[in-house]
Design a protein around this nucleic acid. Sequence first.
RNA 1: GCCCCCGUAGCUCAGCGGAUAGAGUACCGGCCUCCGAAGCCGGGUGCGUGGGUUCGAGUCCCGCCGGGGGCACCA
Length: 556
Amino acid sequence: MIKDDISRIVSEAVRRAQSEGALPAVALPEVAIERPQRPEHGDYATSLALRLARAMRSQPVDIAGAIANHIELTDAISSAEVAPPGFINFRLSQDWLTRQVETVLAEGETFSDLNLGVGQKAQLEYVSANPVGPLHVGNGRWGAIGSTLANVLKAVGYGVEQEYYVNDMGTQIDTFATTLYARYQQLFGRDIAIPEEGYPGAYMIDVAEAIRSEHGDAFLRPPGELAPREMRDIGVEKMLTSIAADLASMGVVYDRWFRESSLHVASSAYQVVLQKLRADGFVTEKEGAVWFTSTALGEDKDNVLIRSNGSPTYFASDIAYHYNKLVERGFQRVIDIWGADHQGHVPRMRAAIAALGVERERFDVLIGQLVTLKRGGEVVRISKRSGDIITLREVVEEVGTDACRFFFLTSSPNATMDFDLELAKKQSAENPVYYVQYGHARIASILTLAQERGIDWADGDPSLLVHEAEQALIRKMLELPEILETIARSLEPHHLPHYAIALATTFHDFYEKCRVISSEPGDLPITKARLKLVAAAKIALARTLGLMGMAAPERM
RNA sequence: GCCCCCGUAGCUCAGCGGAUAGAGUACCGGCCUCCGAAGCCGGGUGCGUGGGUUCGAGUCCCGCCGGGGGCACCA
């Protein structure tokens, strides 16, 4: 990226200035290059001189001047100017800028790819809701964020695997089974109430009915007996099928569905991990249970691994799961996306990973804040335990996949999000996503027209693109790789939709100001050049939409 | 009580310690006789609050207020 080139050029300039004695020999901090807000400040800028002022015991402007004097301009950078109080502003050369149109065209679908993660396998786990009920809108948010993050990490070079961790054992599954069996028995006329802490939602009746229609009374046991194991498994599978369909409907597709239960078969991760923790002295027994001594690692309290009834906790499974990912499967990076309601789990999980001897930077947890569901400004409680749930499916069907994803992606994962159903439905027609897609469709129709008129623009000369709006468009396209770098570093994909709007705006502005296909014979050269520009913009727009998991329509 | 996240325009949200804080939407007014008006141009209000660090704070630190979420042998 040009940004990195500038950073390097600046460091070299400082080094030269220092060796010549023009600047004191102090340690150089990382040379941050930013994009100034105001065009008169150039394309890129650095405040390095301001940061160095203290250490160099000198005026920022003087330092900036000394650096600027030692900067060797390249064919890409036409000027490096000092601006008070001590900025150095860089301008891209027009020639280099217009040449980037050819670069984008040549790169095509790989435009904006980077190599930050080459050779590294990253695993992304998200949503992973318990298969005890349908997904709600909050899960949809993680779906959109997770899948977009996966796309971005792939684009910057990582080998990415997306995974859904299926909690198919434990208390909630037992409750699910009990509820399901109660519903099933009700279908055969038994007067059985669903459990106190069960799942009262009507979907459980649907599952029970599906099982009855497929298996008849095969699972009916004498009154008082517990739910048969097979029925529980069938019920879980049905829930998973429905969850997978809901996620697929919003463009979320996993490489793998990983069962918690698979960690507990003979000689699997769970056994290995427990033995390892025990051998390393992180395990103790008290009150009839087996504990992980997180306090030894600075935690507030110890955590149970195996309950006094002998069954492993979710925590124990999760340690085994992460051991499986980080050690057995050898992912260099493991990224989990959890809802804020799991934040309490983070410290002990980190402690456990440290106990396993895994470097902490290989494991990231994104704690996403929750979605507050509203209807006409009024808060709707979402809970699998209440009958009244608004499912993700309903929302996707009403709002549409693309608008839904865009909506989920726009806000920072750190911020709680209000999802107003009335508003979402209303806004689905005027969602900014259509603004972006419209830009793409507009370009498509320009290119179609060019083809119909038989304009061959292969020999178009981009150096003719001297109009301010043309150059603004090129500059905006070049921003995409920088955005991807930011997202890969921060793991916050919300910058993408904001960029998408900005890119579309820049295109629409260009479109208003610059006629692409002109009938004037003398305009043929600029027409060809602009067709190249427009084709490049189409690539950038399509890539941006694609990374967000949205369609880039040829017409709409 | 302790811990985490958030508080920016009427609404929904951006803003990597930098130069005059931005989008979308809503509201008002203008713009289609060669490419799609799902578009463009113009119009205005805002960093919850009090301190601190810094050459420079919406951004970092502390207090307070407000909202959300945690503090299980649930997940």
